[in-house]
Computed example of a mutant assay.
Amino acid sequence: MTKYTLLLLSMVLLAGCSKKSDNPAAPGTYYLRFKADGVQKEYKAHTLAQLYYDPENLSYHCNMTSSLKTAELGKDALSLFLLSKTAYKTGERYHLRNEIEMPKTNAIMPQVMISMFTESGKPYTAQFLPVTGLQFDDAAEVKFTEITDKYVRGTFSGLAFSMLPERAELKVTDGEFYLAVYK
């Protein structure tokens, strides 16, 4: 439960970190669009991507987030969190099921996680690695089609769930992102 809370808190904090001077395009140009259980969504507020190297854990991080409205950070928002042992590359697919070891904490993390708030504020995540004996069907996939120092572009999909014990399913399909890189 703590990991879940930290993931949601990270999403809200990251969404609140926006510097207009680092946005190379006009507001509303960047987006994160996808279908949630078949319903088209397009978020254009607080659009940003943050890519960096974590020397303590010998891993590359990419946090991407966007929301529908600036004033409602706990509603209509989606974030993608990625970890990799190598620099991100275009054309490569990154998957939740791939385990990334974090040496500083000895934790094993999924390579991709999704965190989403619906319009009512209900949280969903795809964050659990497969575990023998437990049925966690969480899934997430991200593919970069462009990576520059100004923006990232690509596709994503996943299968996210609400909090335990309910674990209601939410299918995320046809995801696309075009996000400014925050420096």
Rank of each mutant, 00 (worst) to 15 (best):
A49K: 02
E166W: 02
S59W: 00
T148V: 12
K89I: 01
E92T: 15
S18C: 13
E99L: 04
T47G: 15
S66R: 05
D149T: 15
E119K: 15
G121D: 10
D76G: 15
D22G: 05
M116P: 00
G154R: 01
Y52P: 01
Y124E: 05
S18E: 13
T90C: 11
V152I: 14
Y151K: 08
N106W: 01
D174C: 01
Y88R: 06
M64V: 08
E56T: 07
R33V: 02
N63I: 08
L48N: 10
T105Y: 09
A77N: 12
A126F: 03
Q111D: 07
P110Y: 04
E119M: 11
L78T: 05
P27I: 06
R153C: 09
V181T: 10
A25H: 11
M11W: 02
I114H: 02
L7T: 14
A139Y: 10
A168P: 00
T173S: 14
T105R: 08
F161S: 03
T173E: 14
S10M: 10
Q40W: 07
E119V: 12
K20V: 09
Y94C: 04
D137K: 13
G175F: 01
K41L: 03
G38S: 13
M64K: 02
L51V: 15
A36R: 12
K104D: 09
T65A: 13
E56L: 14
L7A: 14
A49H: 03
K19S: 13
K3M: 09
Y151P: 00
M163C: 00
L82I: 06
S115F: 04
L7K: 05
Y30K: 01
G74S: 12
G133T: 07
Y43W: 09
P110R: 05
E101N: 11
E146A: 14
S157T: 06
L82V: 08
V131C: 01
R93W: 00
S115C: 15
K69W: 05
F34Q: 02
M163I: 02
A139K: 05
R153M: 13
K150D: 13
T145I: 13
D37Q: 12
Q111H: 08
R167I: 06
Y124F: 15
M64N: 02
S157W: 00
G28N: 06
